[in-house]
Design a protein around this nucleic acid. Structure first.
Lengths: 167, 167
DNA sequence: GCAATATACTAGGACATCCAAGGGTTTGGA
DNA sequence: TCCAAACCCTTGGATGTCCTAGTATATTGC
């Protein structure tokens, strides 16, 4: 994980696919593998930036989502849907954020099944500070050209829509 | 995680970023978030296809890598470097593959520190079957257009190279 | 030749994700 | 009205990833 490899391992995989007679799917295989690897690299950068704040990306995303909500509160199922993660992942994140005093659980006023997650003042302040650093250290130095950013947003947006993320 | 959302949550996040005066990094934020989400979707598809084989993506990748090695064997550190994951992740995968009888550990002939991972006949056969299904069910139906696949490979290839994955 | 440094793998711990299952609350049709 | 079906959240379990530390083996330098 330290020294760069002499050759692109994904390009090599693609060649292997072609050599084995799977040329028809070699390119998509390479694209998908590249997405997996890119995600890993980006997640590593993000986690490194958030670590000093005692946050992980999952917890940060939840804090950020809450900070954009008018009331600073959201039902857990709503958060799960918007973050597009399993409900149990939200439970897990809320547990830890609550232990850190960044959010509190409160009962829904009319639906006894639902739990609201509410940002505390500390949570709101931390979200703001973390976002500032994330913006300058990660998003502002993504390494993608402006045109490539547009291409990614377009290509992946279409993909996500076809995958049923939104309509 | 079931019903499509009425709106694209990442596009909404981008709007929120712009509303808060972070327009300069809103687009890269959206692109990066889209990569994270796309990876999640793709991983879900892959894991679903591999589950009947008793494999996960991490284990499959190791099997596939070994199946392309001339001798069907690789040192663990080599596998770690090529798969670009932490050495402990390889240890973990090898433990499980070995329990399943798909690989065996053997000592390196000249370097006492090194352990070779070797594909068993069962492992080789399973890798072949799993690859066939992945090709037809996932890579062959990626949902990306041919041109978009090329764009992804180009954009993410440059990114990975700049990130130090290879030279 | 021997000690210091580097390399290889593994053990233990923290987190995140998903799935399956369980208990409580609402809703809706008979 | 009342019970079954739907919905919401949590718990417990399996995996994967990384980090830190520890053990064993090689290599390097004095």
């Amino acid at each position: 994980m330290g020294t760069p490899l002499p050759r692109d391992p994904i390009a090599d995989a693609r060649l292997n696919w072609e050599r084995h007679g799977w040329s028809d799917v070699a390119a998509p295989m390479a694209a998908i593998t590249a997405i997996m690897r890119t995600q890993q690299i980006l997640l590593g950068r993000i986690e490194a930036v958030l670590r000093p704040f005692g946050l992980t990306f999952a917890r940060y995303e939840l804090l950020a989502l809450l900070s954009f909500a008018r009331s600073g509160a959201l039902p857990m199922n709503k958060a799960s849907a918007l973050l597009q993660v399993h409900p149990t992942s939200v439970t897990n994140a809320v547990d830890r954020l609550q232990d850190a005093g960044l959010v509190i659980r409160s009962p829904h006023p009319t639906d006894g099944r639902t739990t609201l997650i509410e940002l505390t003042p500390d949570g709101r302040a931390l979200a703001k500070r973390a976002t500032a650093v994330l913006n300058s250290e990660v998003f502002g130095q993504s390494g993608f050209g402006d045109q490539d950013v547009d291409q990614l947003i377009r290509i992946l947006g279409t993909f996500r829509q076809n995958a049923g993320d939104f309509s």
